[in-house]
Structure formats: structure tokens, C-alpha cells
Amino acid sequence: MANENPWPNEGNTGHIWDEDIRELDYPPPLWWMLAFYAGFVMIVFYALYYPTIPTPTGNTKGLAGWTQMKEYHEDFETLNKWRAEKFAAQEQALTEKSVEEILADKNLVDYAVATSKALFGDYCAACHGAGGAGNVNYPILADDDWLWGGDVNTIYQSLVSGRVGNMPAYGAMLSSEQIGQVTDFVIAMSEGKADSEAFAAGREVYNSIGCAGCHMPDGSGMAALGAARLNDKVWRFSGERAEVMKTIAKGVNAIGEKETRHAVMPAFAERLGDKEVKRLSIYVHSLGGGK
């Protein structure tokens, strides 16, 4: 093959494949070779500077003394120091005072609200919506309708320990006709027509199976049990007839009922710490419906 090189003068290596593929004998460009060697030099310096080489007992520490945990703590310290310089008094007040005391101090309330935006947005808004506007099947926080109570202390308790809704499933106890009747009565209640004789059958069921025990005879609800108020236009789940029937038939967190509605507010005391929970309580209270 070597003596059949049809391109004897172009400086190829003399190897020819597939009729015309050949390689020239040029050296790599000088700048490329220099940069290639510089790469090795860089590796040496980098390995001296940062923890890079494993040893039998761990690894080399590097001249910079850098570790990722050290970097993290230093960044965090910088931020904390900056916060402490400007807002030490407010932060201390949030730590020491009760939520009621904080609520009495207008400047402190303003401060808590101003520092809650990302906290609420990242931990609460996924369920309760941006600005507490609510979501399908999750309560609105920006109105004055409260399941468990809207005074600041109760809000604080809801955040500290969480809440678990509870309503029995009536699907096995009632006929579907009865469920339909009590559903119509409950919807009438929300529309202010509960007294109409048209809903007498439903009222009868409502009073006889124990609905009134938690939701009260007039549908005004009971905050101590987290029982929803029924005589207003705000629905804990949905006001659609089929959805109300589902709530009554399947209950809320009803044990043994697979299709029951789930209504759980997680506890945040351990997750965020007491100071942040207080901050959020003030923020939620300020959303419009705090009592």
C-alpha cells in the first residue's frame, strides 16, 4: 500500500483507508499543546489548594482550608450577623413575646408581616394558595370564616400542632334518598332557605343522625371541634350537590372508609421553630380575617 500513495506530496502518514481517507503528519497547534500541559499544572495547583487526594485516614485538607460545610456555615453566619445588626430587637421580641403580645405592638406586626413572604410562599401557599386565597379542597385563609377559630392564639396552635379534620361517613347508615335530602337541606342552609318546608325531610335527617351535634342546629358550626359553619356561602370542600353528597357519604378522615376526604394540616413547630411559627401566625392573622 505504501508505494501506492496517490498523494505523495501532501505530507500524509502513508496510511490510506477506504480509497481516500488519510491523515496528515502535522503536529498539534502549539497553543493547543501548551494549554494541554497547562491543564496538568492546574491539576497540581488545584490539588494543593483544595481537599482533593484521598489518603488512608481521610483526604488531604488543601492549603485553602476549604470544606463545603465551612463555606455553608460562613455564608449563614454572614447573613445572620447582617440581620442581627439591623433587626436584633425585633427578632428578640419575636422570640420572647407571646403571639398576643406581638399582635398588640403595631411595629412588630409590620415587621413580622414584612419578613413572612417567602416563608408563607414556600411552606403554606402550596395548599392555601398565594396570599392565602385557598385551593380546591384547601381552606381559604384570607377570609373571616375559620374552621378552628381565627384569634391569633388559635391560629398559632393550628400551626404548632397541626389539625386533623374529622367527620363520620354516613354512607352505610343512610339510604341514598336520605343522603340526597340532607344534602338539599344543607345547601338550602347556605342559601338562607333552611326554614322552607320544602326541606323538612332533610332537616329531619340532619337533626336525627347527629349533624346538629357538631354543626349546631342552625348550622353555625363549632370551632372547638373544627366543625365547619354551614349557614354561609363558604364551603370547606365543595358546594356542588354531588360533592356535598360525597362528603356526607364518605366523611372526612373517616377510619376504614377508603374514599373518605382527607383534611390534614401538618404540625410546623419542629420543622420551622417557634419564632418562625409566631411570625407566620401574625402573617396569617393579618391576611384579612383575623379575629
Binding site: W32, F36, M42, I43, A47, Y50, P51, I53, Q68
Partner: peptide, 22 residues
């Protein structure tokens, strides 16, 4: 991941620019 493993990954990556450009 231990710091040294990440450092090795980073520095060899940087040293790979020139071979790749080859």
C-alpha cells in the same frame, strides 16, 4: 459526597476542555 471527590470531579472536568477541543 465527600469534598475531595467533588474536587477531583471539578478539576479533571476543567482539564478536559483542551482534550475535548482537540
Amino acid at each position: 459526597l465527600p469534598d475531595w471527590v467533588g474536587s477531583l470531579g471539578a478539576v479533571i472536568s476543567l482539564a478536559m476542555i483542551i482534550p475535548s477541543w482537540g
